[in-house]
Amino acid sequence: MRLRNPFGRKTKEFPSHLWTQCPSCGEMLFNKQLERNHRVCQKCGHHFKLGALERIDLLADAKSFSETDADIVSSDPLGFVDSKPYPERIAAAQAKSGHKDAVLTGDAQIAGIPVALAVMDFEFMGGSMGSVVGEKLTRTAERAYADRKPLVIVSASGGARMQEGTIALMQLAKTVAAVARLDEAAIPFISVLTDPTTGGVLASFASLGDIVLAEPGALIGFSGARVTSETIGEKLPKGFQRSEFLLEHGFVDQVVPRTQLKERIAFFLNAFRVAGQDLRWSL
């Protein structure tokens, strides 16, 4: 029989609620410190995924975020059942993430500049875009249009939500139509791509920012690995769909470390302001 060690905990060296191992460099990171560093590894700069609330804390000025359309929830347009029914998946995702769906939207200020802000959360069904995400993003863009203030969308999504079938596909056109109106009215739209941004989200609004920023090392690409291997029978090379790859090929403007993200967004927002005017756009 083993005796309990009277001098504290030694049997389990790295309890997971206190420590996280960096998948990139293997360093053991103290959770509290990791949170304080916005979930970026202090040693190698690996960017862990960030939840929507933490992302809002990172970007929006303190207490400036007011959520909109918080109560929209998904219905089950197709009666979709794979291994479990879609409503059960929704309920499980809501319990797991604490959000109603995969995006939080609202009004906020970034360095004092009022913006319409939308932040996706990968924890909720892989950040997939169905009716609720499409509607909330569209309303956010329409609010930006109506108030003539810039739109900032932070994407983290596997793509369209298959469980909503073609309705989910139509969300691509719906969201794009909404940001296209901002484009015509010269209202700035800054798109931030985080790990991962793929499929229907990248193939719609996320690619259309006036400025497209990406976090280091994020998976960003059109087709998912499984679809590629099923369709063309070959696998994409490693590192093929990373932020740096997109930067090299000309599809993102900058790869920005998370700690500098807010000031960089603020810089662009300031640059697009018309001289001599207050914080509102009145073109």
């Binding site: 909109t68 359309d69 918080a70 998904s74 609720v132 499409g134 309705i167 056109a173 719906k174 139509a177």
Partner: peptide, 17 residues
């Protein structure tokens, strides 16, 4: 036409204006 795609539930009288 494309704006109208989407099926969701929005509880009226909720916090959302």
């Amino acid at each position: 036409r494309f704006r109208s795609f989407g099926m969701f539930v929005e509880p009226d009288g909720g916090a959302a204006p």
